[in-house]
Computed example of a mutant assay.
Amino acid sequence: MTATIEFDEPRAVDTARGSSPEQLKIKKRSRRRQRLEAIGFTGPALLVYVLFVFVPVGFAMAMSLFAGVRTAPFNEFVGLDNFIEIFTRGRMFGQPFFWDAVRNNFLIAGMSLAIQGPVAIGVALLLNRKMRGRGIVRLLIFVPYVLSEVITGVIFQMILMPNGALDVWLERLGLGNLSGTLWLADTGGGLGSVTFWTIFFVLTWKYVGLAVILFLAGLSGIPEELTEAAMIDGASWWQIQRRITIPLLGPTIRIWAFLSLIGSFQLFDMIWILTRGNPTPTGMHTMATYMVQMGMNANRVGYGSAIAVVLFVITLIIAMVYQKLILSRDLGKGA
Results as ranks from 00 to 15, higher is better:
Pro279Tyr: 01
Phe41Arg: 12
Gly40Leu: 05
Tyr49Phe: 15
Trp205Val: 06
Ser30Val: 14
Val102Ala: 10
Met284Lys: 02
Tyr322Arg: 08
Val202Phe: 00
Arg33Pro: 12
Ser220Met: 08
Val137Met: 11
Glu6Val: 15
Phe77Lys: 08
Pro21Asn: 07
Gly122Tyr: 06
Ile136Trp: 13
Val53Ala: 09
Asn82Ser: 05
Gly79Phe: 04
Ile244Leu: 02
Ala235Gly: 07
Tyr207Gly: 11
Phe201Arg: 13
Met291Ala: 03
Asp8Ser: 15
Ile5Cys: 10
Thr187Cys: 13
Met270Thr: 07
Glu224Ile: 08
Phe59Glu: 10
Val48Lys: 05
Pro10Thr: 15
Phe265Tyr: 02
Gly122Glu: 03
Ala62Tyr: 09
Gly218Lys: 01
Trp272His: 03
Gly263Ser: 03
Arg33Val: 11
Pro223His: 03
Leu267Pro: 00
Leu261Lys: 09
Pro223Val: 02
Trp238Leu: 10
Met158His: 12
Ile307Val: 09
Gly110Trp: 09
Thr280Ala: 13
Leu36Trp: 15
Val55Gln: 07
Gly190Pro: 03
Ala230Asp: 02
Ala124Lys: 03
Leu191Tyr: 10
Gly90Phe: 07
Met320Thr: 14
Trp169Pro: 14
Met231His: 13
Arg70Glu: 05
Thr195Tyr: 04
Ile255Lys: 08
Asn297Lys: 14
Thr195Lys: 03
Gly153Leu: 02
Ala257Thr: 09
Val57Asn: 10
Ile136Gly: 10
Glu6Met: 13
Leu178Val: 06
Asp186Gly: 01
Thr280Trp: 14
Thr315His: 07
Met287Gly: 01
Ile262Pro: 11
Trp169Gln: 13
Arg300Asp: 00
Leu107Pro: 08
Gly174Glu: 02
Phe196Trp: 04
Asn163Asp: 12
Thr15Asp: 14
Ala124Trp: 05
Ala319Val: 08
Tyr145Ser: 07
Ile246Gly: 02
Leu107Gly: 05
Met111Ile: 15
Thr282Phe: 14
Leu125Lys: 08
Tyr303Lys: 00
Ala308Tyr: 04
Glu37Val: 15
Glu225Ala: 09
Thr71Leu: 00
Phe7His: 14
Leu203Cys: 12
Ile307Lys: 00
Ser193Leu: 03
Trp197Pro: 01
Asn128Glu: 08
Ala288Asn: 06
Gln116Thr: 08
Lys27Leu: 15
Tyr290Glu: 00
Thr227Phe: 10
Phe265Thr: 01
Ser193Cys: 04
Ala72Lys: 05
Val168Met: 13
Met111Trp: 15
Ser112Arg: 09
Arg243Tyr: 14
Trp169Leu: 13
Leu173Asp: 11
